[in-house]
């Protein structure tokens, strides 16, 4: 079904309305939660007060009451979490619709040529709005969250952003930012499009020449294990370009919205590395060693 601008706008409007309602619901739930916590605190205080400590029957009654309050609080908190996640889902849906719309327009061939500057802006905002992984307690970050690699059998979906190793000249190969067009199971190859439309090259590449980019951001406060450690050698998108180059992680993101700070290998500088550059999580990936290595 073609996703016209009008249809897309309508879908976005629906999501926005849902989001609007959710914001109110969340607020209601939040104040409800606050009330629960207040009740619990008050009950705890009452239970701890020495005057009632001797009265055992009163104490067990208090404990039962406290237990009920805890249960209610838990449910309320879960409810709030559900609402928050629902709101996030709506936001990601809007993001997906926008992306879908962009791809449709692109494939329809009626290229509203995106200028170079606009493309860069789009890439930046795509990285900033990449969904954040909010794990449940004890849950480990899933594949393609932050630095966690994809599963061995993972097949990227059409529209997914990938780093692709393409031959740019007789001698040179480059890791470029591309978008999956289709997966050809018979050949075990991907069809990918250069993200830079001006290049307008479609490449058919074997699986090992295609590295999917993270689908989620990892929060350094909860999932530090899902980030590259300092000193790791990675491939990172050079700022304001659509190419990945080898770099060393210099500083980790301090929060979920923060980018990495990396040093690019660059022989034109005396020490062989560029000054620190900031690169978003989405554009920092594990290096592929072996035959298809970037030069």
């Amino acid at each position: 079904m073609p996703l016209t601008a009008d249809v897309a706008a309508q879908q976005v409007q629906e999501r926005l309305r849902a989001l609007h309602r959710l914001v109110y619901d969340i607020e209601a739930e939040r104040s409800h939660n606050e009330q629960c916590i207040d009740n619990i605190l008050r009950a705890e205080k009452a239970a701890e007060s020495p005057s009632n400590a001797e009265d055992s029957s009163g104490s067990s009654q208090q404990q039962a009451q406290l237990k009920n309050l805890y249960k209610a609080g838990l449910t309320a908190a879960e409810q709030e979490e559900r609402l928050l996640r629902a709101a996030l889902t709506r936001i990601y849906e809007i993001r997906a619709i926008k992306n879908e719309r962009r791809m449709q327009a692109r494939h329809a061939g009626n290229k509203e040529t995106i200028g170079c500057g606009a493309l860069m802006k789009m890439l930046l905002s795509a990285a900033q709005t990449l969904p954040l992984h909010v794990g449940r307690v004890g849950e480990r970050a899933p594949p393609l969250c932050g630095a966690v690699p994809a599963d061995a059998g993972h097949i990227a979906h059409p529209g997914d952003a990938v780093a692709a190793l393409v031959r740019v000249s007789e001698k040179e190969e480059n890791w470029i930012l591309a978008e999956v067009v289709s997966w050809l199971p018979a050949q075990g190859k991907y069809e990918v499009d250069d993200i830079d439309e001006e290049q307008k090259n479609r490449h058919t590449l074997s699986k090992r020449r295609v590295v999917p980019l993270p689908l989620m951001r990892a929060d350094p406060r909860t999932d530090e294990h899902a980030l590259f450690p300092k000193g790791a050698v990675v491939m990172a998108l050079y700022p304001q370009t659509t190419c990945f180059y080898r770099a060393v992680v210099n500083r980790l993101p301090s929060n979920a919205a923060d980018p990495y700070e990396v040093l690019f290998e660059d022989s034109s500088y005396a020490d062989g590395y560029s000054p620190p550059e900031r690169v978003a999580q989405r554009y920092v990936i594990a290096i592929k060693e072996g035959k298809g290595r970037a030069t």
């Binding site: 706008a9 500057g117 789009m122």
Partner: peptide, 15 residues
């Protein structure tokens, strides 16, 4: 308009 939700075609030197 609906377009504002998506790509805004700004002049090159706008930013």
């Amino acid at each position: 308009g609906p377009d504002a939700l998506f790509q805004m075609q700004a002049p090159r030197d706008e930013a």
